[in-house]
Design a protein around this nucleic acid. Structure first.
Lengths: 65, 65
DNA sequence: TGTAAATGTCAAGTTTTATTTACATTTTAT
DNA sequence: ATAAAATGTAAATAAAACTTGACATTTACA
């Protein structure tokens, strides 16, 4: 699962730690998701989408589309 | 996490077993998600959205919106 | 150049979700 | 009314998300 978190963070001038803080997860979780090590839970995906004011599909792209 | 799976199944005349089959999970998993017992993984949410040609947000509604 | 902030990574452990199996209840249709 | 199909539910296990802590590397910038 690819994603645009790094770009969205840059656009919003946020660090991984800040994003982790705002979504209530650890910095390592944000880093791992950003690097594609695993997928976020659906609730976390919703939080991220809401925070950046985007659709989940605009942030995350399923490989097998 | 609420969802519209039951309605979407009805609109597409599908059983839980058929939906399970098409998304590669067990019928009980579909049933549990449909009844709100737990949330699908993000990949499964993508599969369901793709199958019904909807956005994830159109199928699933996070309670704390 | 040095140093602090940010990012990357890894291992071990906890929590949550998915899957399986099995059975009970409800719905549908004959 | 009865049989079959569909749905509901629960316990046990597997798998994945997430945490914690620690340390290494990279980036920014004084």
């Amino acid at each position: 699962m690819k994603n645009k978190l790094k770009v969205l963070r840059a656009e919003n001038d946020m660090t991984q730690a800040q994003l982790a803080d705002e979504t209530g997860v650890s910095r390592q979780t944000i880093n791992a998701i950003e690097k594609g090590k695993f997928d976020p839970s659906l609730p976390l995906a919703f939080k991220l989408a809401r925070l950046f004011n985007r659709k989940i599909e605009d942030i995350f792209q399923d490989e097998n589309d």
